[in-house]
Write a protein that binds this DNA or RNA. Structure first.
Lengths: 205, 205
DNA sequence: TAGATTGTTAATCGATTAACAATC
DNA sequence: TAGATTGTTAATCGATTAACAATC
């Protein structure tokens, strides 16, 4: 078995991709590891090393064709197609996520929204009606959805997580301010603004 | 000069703290590096090593007093007092952040909200009126605010960042889907849901 | 050709883990 | 006392950087 690509390398690819897409939007067509590095605050050597894990995408003396490299990274990250996403929680954060316009161009699309609050169930959010969380497992299975965004209170996050795992979800973006446990083979990422702020306050005077 | 604490260690402290606070809420009073580690998916050795960078907070044979350890971490992270925060951008994400109830108990408080859209300026969000972004620099200086949350479109993120830096901001939590450049001495953290999702889609079949 | 930049190797640097004496 | 768990050291593991031959 080949050595797996380090998780930390995978973690940087979306950042490279985002920068490349901004460059494309600006009409640029070629870049270099040095330019990308300066833009992102990452060493040029690291960018070249990261990319070389997946193939040879550049040309000596010239650099990288932006569009080509972006396509390659999209293929690596498996976002050439669009992934359907289940959003759990139709509170303020759920609503903001539902309204977010950036997902579609970046490989994701919210296709179902669930909540347990009778006052929210049936409400229209964007293109979708809020569904009863009771139907979550069957709906996710039926639609074969693999990714969920969790925007529920911390107190029910683990319980909902367990149901998502039962429903076949393999990746959870957790907005609830609590650590969740998932079995092997299920990925998770956390977004907790207070945690991110606390990572900076340490350095303040 | 003493060796600085690694950034990666600082990054884990808020996660430890969050778990400790959940334990307190559950009425618990003592824990161990092993229990914490299992809960967080981190090795017990790493937790002990991380904490030992700052002092001796535990007791052999017993473990850690939850309340005491939480207080110590709060002191380390400088969140014993509450930091005032400027929120830039009163769109969907800005509104969700303004409504978020979790900040106050965790060391932060949104005290001013800015936008450039005439339709939003003057609107009431929570306890505050949306202020004109033109007044941002002077308002931030006047209130001596050091932390900003940036929830503006990518296209203006760098421009607004530069103004925030001029206003004396030392920490930026950036929700705009673009890398920003800041001078030495200013911290930044990124929250981009698409980036987080892309870090997981790689692993999906 | 001359200049630029890649991909890769080896060296360096840093983080994690295993193990255990100390001690509650 | 016996059992448990810390704080710390040394060993291991992994990530980053520097340097350069290859080559466009």
């Amino acid at each position: 078995m080949k050595k797996p690509i380090p998780d930390i390398v995978i973690g940087r690819l979306p950042v490279y991709l985002r920068a490349l897409q901004h460059m494309m939007d600006a009409g640029r067509s070629v870049t270099s590891s040095q330019e990308l590095g300066e833009r992102l605050g990452i060493s040029a050597a690291q960018i070249r090393k990261d990319l070389s894990q997946f193939g040879e995408f550049g040309k000596q003396g010239t650099g990288y064709t932006i569009e080509f490299l972006a396509q390659q990274i999209q293929a690596i990250l498996k976002i050439e197609k669009v992934w359907e996403i289940a959003l759990i929680g139709a509170g303020d954060m759920g609503n903001a996520l539902a309204a977010y316009q950036g997902f579609n161009q970046r490989g994701f699309h919210i296709s179902k929204i669930f909540d347990s609050d009778p006052n929210k169930i049936g409400k229209q959010i964007g293109d979708y009606k809020v569904l009863n969380i009771e139907s979550m497992e069957s709906e996710i299975k039926k639609a074969n959805i693999k990714i969920a965004m969790l925007a529920v209170p911390a107190s029910v996050a683990q319980e909902v997580t367990d149901k998502l795992v039962d429903a076949g979800i393999k990746a959870i973006l957790n907005y609830a301010p609590v650590s969740i446990n998932v079995p092997e083979g299920v990925r998770k990422q956390y977004i907790d603004p207070a945690v991110h702020l606390q990572r900076m306050s340490y350095y303040l005077k």
